[in-house]
């Protein structure tokens, strides 16, 4: 490898990593938390079959799953200002990523909730619990456990997906790579480098996922 390229990679590495840790990771965590909250609420509404709200949830899932993420980002960031709704780039990214992944995760959660035997819900009523208590203490904990691998997948794909925030001016890790590249013209080296950092982040998440799955399996024995 020539000296110049090596120098560029060594120079850019701390910058990229720093944007990764200061922007990409928080963006992922915030968006994923939002997605999680949305998915639980949307799944609960469908599970409980609440009229009207249920239709609204189905509509939300239909629209989100039927349109590209990139288009959603552009629509909110470049489109909404023309009707007077102006949001900064970072909050826009959190909202769009959160609502986008939330739609997919809602379907995961709903399926996981429905896999909890209905008999446990009836038993809950019989010992005097309310619907909300049964959800909070019996159904959701089991559903989370079932959904854990799929939710981990969502988290990992969201981490990589945050690179799309670059297209709406959020200065995150990938956009920083394009900025540096604009100065030094080393596409192969720089994008390779940023790819490796994403890979490292995802490897850590995968490790956490395995650890979490083991933890869940040991608590409460294995499920039949």
């Amino acid at each position: 490898m020539n000296e110049r390229l090596w120098g560029i990679l060594v120079d850019s590495f701390p910058k990229l990593l720093s944007y990764g840790i200061r922007v990409t990771v928080p963006l992922t965590i915030l968006s994923f938390s939002l997605a999680l909250v949305i998915s639980v609420i949307v799944a609960l509404i469908q599970y409980a079959d609440v009229p009207v709200l249920r239709q609204i949830c189905r509509f939300y899932i239909w629209v989100i799953r039927g349109t590209p993420l990139l288009v959603q980002l552009y629509l909110v960031f470049y489109g909404l200002p023309s009707v007077g709704i102006v949001l900064a780039a970072f909050p826009t990214a959190v909202l769009v990523f959160g609502f986008n992944e939330g739609a997919y995760m809602a379907e995961t959660m709903r399926g996981a909730m429905e896999s909890v035997s209905h008999g446990q819900v009836e038993a809950g009523y019989c010992v005097g619990l309310t619907f909300i208590q049964i959800m909070a203490h019996v159904v959701l904990p089991q559903a989370f456990r079932t959904a854990f691998p799929a939710l981990s997948n969502s988290l990992i794909s969201m981490l990589k997906g945050t690179s799309m925030a670059a297209t709406i001016t959020v200065m995150e890790m990938f956009r920083q790579a394009t900025v540096i590249n604009g100065r030094v013209y080393e596409s192969l080296g720089l994008y390779g480098e940023v790819a490796l950092i994403y890979l490292a982040f995802c490897t850590i998440l995968t490790g956490l996922q395995h650890w979490g799955e083991k933890k869940l399996a040991s608590y409460g024995g294995t499920r039949s």
Partner: peptide
């Protein structure tokens, strides 16, 4: 109180 054929214990408890 109600006792079910399939016990219906809370599996996470």
């Amino acid at each position: 109180a109600f006792v079910f054929q399939n016990y219906n214990l809370f599996l996470n408890k």
